[in-house]
Design a protein around this nucleic acid. Structure first.
Length: 319
DNA sequence: GCTTAACCTGGACGC
DNA sequence: GCGTCCAGGTTAAGC
């Protein structure tokens, strides 16, 4: 493994993030199922957008303590936004010590995904991205969300050396989605979720600008209750939104993977029980009791480990 | 309070 | 090539 950045990185990514003793694993962070529109090119550079700003990010693979090179577009050097999105002000080693003493299985996850961070995404993109997740596969979610941005989002002009085209697209404004066409969304694989997108956009638009952003400043339970009150949003999607964009670090989304983990680690007797609201709450509380205020972050490590295990089971060549 | 079926559809898998 | 099953969920009806 070489820590030497490719020529294209040295030439074009002029900003560097590195903090002694503080890990940041770019690939694990962006591959762990939190965000659906980041893509890696052949040089290993990750490309994605945060609001109306596009980023290119590179780090030597498998080296979470190595420098991270990055650039933003169209305005260069958006350090505050970069550090905010990747939550780089949060120190992980302290959390690791707490998690390892709470759960033996965390040790292997931390070894494997050291530096994985929970993102602070744009609430509108996160909200609609996880709309697409119900009864779906990650590949199809990524395709559908990307299509949505291309149809209704604002283009961001990219430099000629960007391999993903002359423009990337910002995620659409809520107002743009209120006038989206259901048949078009269905053609983009949104399926039965298509009318929900339009209906939810109308509700959010009627609530006034920034209704989702305002949830960042209310307690977790209040934000979760508001999201669950919306037609088509259940406890799992509400928890994904709370964790990945609303600063609710204790939110624990219980899906098929995190449920398997909970059964294995905390409550083997619940393996045959249906995931009713009561069982959902019980499992999420079990994570919080064990991992504390950052239970959602700990869950993300265990979730990613489970995901990787499932991928290896499907395709042994990955070993 | 729990179980079940319906909602879309691409891809994997078995035949 | 074709049929069947599954996937990061939610909802409402029936019990």
């Amino acid at each position: 493994m070489s820590l030497l950045a490719p020529a294209v990185v040295q030439e074009h990514l002029s900003n560097v993030w590195q903090k002694p003793g503080e890990p940041f694993n770019v690939s694990a962070t962006l591959e762990s199922g939190q965000a659906f529109r980041w893509r890696k090119d052949v040089a290993g550079i990750w490309w994605g957008t945060v609001g109306k700003v596009a980023f290119a990010v590179w780090q030597a693979e498998g080296s979470p303590f190595s420098p991270v090179f990055w650039e933003s577009f169209p305005v260069a050097g958006q350090t505050e936004l970069f550090e905010d999105f990747f939550r780089l002000s949060l120190s992980l080693p302290t959390l690791y010590a707490e998690w390892e003493s709470a759960e033996a299985e965390m040790d292997a996850c931390i070894q494997s995904f050291c530096g994985l961070r929970v993102l602070r995404q744009d609430p509108v993109e996160c909200f609609f991205g996880f709309q697409c997740a119900s009864c779906n596969t990650v590949i199809k979610i990524e395709r559908s969300v990307r299509k949505l941005a291309e149809r209704y989002g604002q283009p961001i002009l990219m430099p000629e050396w960007c391999p993903f085209g002359p423009v990337l697209y910002a995620f659409p404004e809520v107002e743009s989605l209120t006038s989206a066409d259901e048949a078009t969304l269905r053609a983009d694989l949104w399926g039965f979720r298509a009318p929900r997108v339009i209906a939810l956009a109308s509700i959010l638009a009627s609530e006034g600008e920034g209704v989702l952003h305002r949830l960042r400043s209310v307690p977790y339970m209040e934000a979760h209750a508001y999201l669950c009150s919306l037609q088509g949003i259940g406890a799992k999607v509400a928890d994904c939104i709370c964790l990945f964009c609303l600063d609710k670090d204790c939110a624990v989304p219980i899906d098929t993977h995190t449920r398997q983990i909970a059964v294995r680690l905390f409550s083997p007797d619940s393996s045959s029980r249906s995931l009713t609201p009561r069982v959902y709450a019980m499992m999420a509380d079990a994570y919080r009791e064990r991992f504390g205020l950052y239970a959602g972050w700990a869950q993300q490590y265990l979730f990613f480990g489970e995901l990787r295990r499932a991928e290896r089971f499907m395709d042994p060549k990955l070993d």
